[in-house]
Design a binder for these strands. Structure first.
Lengths: 322, 322
DNA sequence: TTGTAGGCGTTATCAG
DNA sequence: CTGATAACGCCTACAA
């Protein structure tokens, strides 16, 4: 016999009343509440979440989908988990390693009611295919998706990129190289477009031949620096996909005895703690705020309560690499 | 009517047979299996996890408890999540920020059957109190716990520490400072003891006055370096709680124009990617392997199948800071 | 091989 | 304010 039944029996009240006490319903006499509460304590009772979920159809669990996780993604996840917890939700992590089938399992878990909603950090499946899952629960994305059906909390990175470009140009750097992340991502397209139009508008050279893609980690950054060093001419500055790439570039530049920022200026992106420690000029990216907004978007559906998002902005943080 | 019922109806078979097909039972005729499978596809059926969990008493979910999460912890989590997934388990993250009550919620979730087991990365509650939860499901810890009831997959860090000490001494560094993490943790005690006995055995100075505690992040490392620089005499080398502390120390040393390793040698711990990129000598810590073993320990109970753990060892990685 | 009946632990809808 | 009674969706003896 379950503890619930035991409480029923010992108190002499019905299931319904016991349930009401558990859920703090007002429609219970003080007497009943006291008696039942007392017995619950004696029995060290705690409700079974699976029974609750089956009955209510809600699990109070949110899935978060990411292909890999680095420190940048971690800061998003941490904030998301915190916010979710404040609203009474637990978070499950789906790391997909870029595998479509594994990723799909997260979406199937929305269907099978393991989670009430999904936050996507990065995904590899076709957005058109994924949007079919919207009928099973709310989905929000950090990465910008191709279609508009799945809402995104991402900011337009072009804004941040232009901040960096203006900074560099104002300091006299005009031959500016770019080191991008995913070649096909919307963010990369957005940054590249910003760069090209900005440079063109100033009558400055657009170094397309210096574009590098798939540079994410500090190792990637090292590699990128070596490539740059091999080119006939070194650019005066390099804009990086993120701070880790910048760290790698900075570190490798030192090894190659390229003086920063005299021979090469470096600008990172995101403003992680290490960028500060290592003195890297970067663009502050309000990641935590975006994570909070991501949960709020889900909550708008799950809790039927809209939370107005505050507008977020990028900020240039000048340090020693420019 | 649920899809399950719909399948029953359309196929003409009973609940039991439908259930058998879902669970790949052998005791089903090919005819029944085919017919039911066909209908399941038509209906795009997927089982409700809450119903399964309620019925079986298993959620196939594991909780992972950590106070904060940095890149080191992240690598443990990632590997744990991966391994769990290979065994059909999803992982939920409990970040406690060092709050006892929040941490306790994770353990209560074991009681309420939200999770089948728990992996602790770091916890703040009294181990004596926590071990009471062992009756509700398996628990394993990375951090070493005071009692032996909760098994730990941690290695004795003294071994790794001695590797570092031997290396430094062999290179001629004899005035060695230490920068520790949590002052009261078993790891710190273990490292400190290793240092003191090792130095004593070699007849070398034990720099107790140079001990620094609570140094975890690169910011902490910067601060630690500044303190060292203020002391009347600089040590010849410093052993760090982890690589991030080492990064901070290295970075700050450069700012203070202290030449590494000539004036100050630095040894990190863990061997994270950035230690390689930045050329920091360190002790390789098989973190991923420990994470795998952590899940295996839980699996021994949940799956009633023991997986023999392979013995793990530390390794010195010599780079440019020594 | 198949079916019946009961159980898993709650919530929810009605009456009273 | 309280209590039957029926969901919720699936699993599992035990029988047939």
């Amino acid at each position: 016999m379950s503890k619930f039944d035991e409480i029923m029996k010992r108190s002499g009240y019905s299931k319904a009343t016991v349930s009401r006490v558990i859920n703090n319903s007002r429609h219970v006499s003080d007497e009943a509440r006291q008696k039942i509460t007392e017995i619950m304590k004696q029995l060290n009772y705690i409700p079974n979440r699976n029974a609750i979920s089956l009955s209510t159809g809600q699990t109070k669990q949110i899935g978060i989908v990411t292909s890999t996780s680095n420190a940048i993604i971690l800061s998003f996840m941490n904030q998301f988990i915190d916010t979710a917890m404040d609203f009474g939700f637990q978070t499950l992590i789906y790391t997909t390693r870029g595998d479509k089938d594994i990723e799909l399992k997260a979406f199937e878990d929305l269907r099978s009611k393991r989670v009430d909603g999904l936050a996507i950090i990065a995904c590899v499946n076709d957005p058109e295919k994924l949007k079919a899952y919207l009928e099973y629960g709310p989905i929000v994305s950090w990465q910008r998706m191709g279609n508009n059906e799945i809402p995104s909390v991402a900011m337009d990175q072009a804004e941040g990129y232009i901040l960096a470009l203006e900074h560099l140009v104002s300091k006299g750097y005009t031959r500016i190289a770019n080191v991008f992340g995913r070649a096909d991502s919307i963010n990369t397209q957005s940054r590249r477009a910003a760069y090209e139009t900005f440079m063109a508008s100033k009558g400055l050279p657009v170094l397309k031949e210096a574009y590098q893609y798939w540079v994410f980690t500090s190792s990637d950054g090292e590699e990128a620096m070596r490539k740059m060093a091999k080119a006939p001419e070194l650019p005066q500055a390099v804009l990086c996909s993120n701070d880790y790439a910048a760290i790698g570039i900075l570190s490798e530049a030192r090894k190659l005895h390229i003086s920063v920022p005299d021979q090469l200026a470096i600008v990172g992106f995101d403003d992680v703690e290490l960028a500060r420690v290592l003195g890297i000029t970067t663009i502050h990216n309000p990641i935590a705020e975006q994570a909070t907004q991501a949960f709020h978007q889900l909550w708008a559906v799950l809790g039927r309560q809209k939370v107005e998002p505050e507008p977020l902005t990028y900020r240039l943080i000048e340090r020693e690499t420019t």
